[in-house]
């Protein structure tokens, strides 16, 4: 008997990343922007999507891929107000994987869309680890969660292409300090744009929509 060591160098996300790559190719070919919204349960991800509808004014047509552990409540909520939405159920899984998203994308009327938003399962940890083939992860943080979350969940905030800070209409009732939150975000990701907004009142939603539209416009023109 002899012992020996075999050197291997293989990424554990290999299969997931392969699907993510297929998705990226599909999206780029069609000049479709796909964003991956990640935040805690109750951070306001669905409310953010609802707030976008009435304020789009012909900027882009979008569809939503709703990731949840159980129930189709969120997709129904969006369909009711006229958003094209498909529900992806993970049945216990804490995150969406690239293969699921790829297959769901193929069921969408892609020719009638400019933007696809994936609303990931409410969770700040697991979804950050999985590439879905999106052009950018968007961290959704509500002011009720506290200022220090970016430092506690650095993977997400480090990878995020944008941070949406929700529920700012509640700031007067909270010990939340905007300045401190911005410091925590900057500490983890110095360059990331931050959009403080209230989906409920509409304040701050317009600059966020402008940013999404600009990302779509920039697709295939060097930077995405």
């Amino acid at each position: 008997m002899s012992r020996s060591e075999i050197k291997v160098y293989r990424h554990l996300m290999g299969e997931n990343d392969l699907w993510a790559e297929h998705t990226r190719e599909l999206l780029l070919k069609r000049r479709l922007l796909m964003l991956n919204l990640i935040g805690s349960p109750g951070a306001g991800k669905t409310a953010l999507l609802e707030a976008m509808v009435g304020r789009l004014a012909g900027k882009f047509r979008f569809a939503v891929l709703e990731g949840d552990v159980e129930t189709t409540y969120d997709a129904e909520r969006l369909v009711r107000i006229g958003i094209q939405a498909s529900q992806l159920l993970t049945s216990g899984g804490c995150h969406l994987q690239a293969r699921m998203v790829h297959q769901a994308l193929l069921d969408l009327p892609l020719d009638a869309l400019e933007v696809v938003v994936v609303e990931n399962v409410g969770n700040l940890v697991c979804p950050a680890e999985f590439d879905l083939g999106e052009m950018g992860k968007v961290a959704v943080l509500s002011v009720t969660e506290g200022e220090d979350k970016p430092a506690k969940y650095p993977m997400l905030f480090r990878e995020a292409k944008a941070v949406v800070l929700t529920k700012i209409d509640l700031i007067p009732y909270l010990p939340f300090k905007m300045e401190r939150c911005m410091e925590f975000i900057r500490q983890v990701n110095g360059q990331v744009p931050v959009f403080p907004l209230s989906a409920l009142k509409g304040e701050g939603v317009a600059p966020w929509i402008e940013w999404v539209a600009a990302q779509r416009e920039g697709l295939g023109k060097g930077s995405a």
Binding site: M1, S2, R3, S4, E5, I6, K7, V8, Y9, R10, H11, L12, M13, E129
Partner: peptide, 11 residues
């Protein structure tokens, strides 16, 4: 996040 090596026993 990757597999680096395998330690095996061979006849």
């Amino acid at each position: 996040l990757h597999l680096e090596s395998l330690e095996v026993e061979e006849n």
